[in-house]
Simulated assay, not measured.
Amino acid sequence: MAKEPAKKTEEAGKSRIKMIIIIVASVVLLIGVGIGAYLFFSSDDKSLTPEQEQALLERQAKEIGPMVNIESFIVNILDQGEVRYLKAAITLEADTPETAAEITQRMPQIKDAILLLIGNKTFAELSDLQGRLQLRAELLNRVNSLLLVGKVKRIYFTDFVVQ
Rank of each mutant, 00 (worst) to 15 (best):
S72F: 02
S72V: 03
S72I: 06
I74K: 09
I74L: 10
V75L: 02
V75I: 12
V75Q: 03
N76I: 02
N76G: 06
N76D: 13
N76A: 10
N76Q: 08
I77M: 05
I77S: 05
I77R: 02
I77W: 03
L78K: 13
L78I: 08
D79W: 01
D79G: 07
D79E: 14
Q80D: 10
Q80P: 00
Q80V: 08
G81Q: 07
G81S: 02
G81V: 07
E82H: 10
E82M: 11
V83A: 12
V83C: 04
V83Q: 13
V83E: 13
V83T: 15
Y85I: 06
Y85F: 12
Y85Q: 09
Y85L: 13
Y85K: 09
L86D: 05
L86Y: 04
L86F: 01
L86C: 06
L86E: 07
L86V: 06
L86M: 09
K87M: 11
K87I: 09
K87L: 11
A88T: 08
A88L: 10
A88D: 05
A88N: 01
A89F: 03
A89I: 03
A89Q: 09
A89K: 02
I90L: 09
I90C: 00
I90D: 00
T91K: 04
T91S: 03
T91Y: 02
T91L: 00
T91F: 01
L92E: 00
L92C: 00
L92N: 00
E93F: 04
E93Y: 04
E93I: 05
E93R: 01
E93V: 07
E93T: 03
A94K: 06
A94C: 11
D95F: 01
D95S: 08
T96N: 09
T96C: 06
T96Y: 00
T96H: 08
P97I: 07
E98N: 15
E98G: 14
E98R: 12
E98A: 15
T99V: 08
T99G: 09
A100M: 10
A100S: 14
A101R: 11
A101Y: 03
A101E: 10
A101G: 10
E102Q: 13
E102V: 07
T104C: 10
T104S: 14
T104W: 08
T104P: 03
T104E: 15
Q105M: 14
Q105T: 11
Q105G: 11
R106N: 08
M107T: 15
M107G: 12
M107F: 09
M107Q: 15
M107K: 14
P108E: 12
P108L: 12
P108T: 12
P108W: 15
P108K: 14
P108R: 12
Q109T: 11
I110C: 12
I110W: 05
K111A: 11
D112H: 10
D112T: 13
D112N: 13
D112K: 13
D112I: 12
A113N: 12
A113L: 14
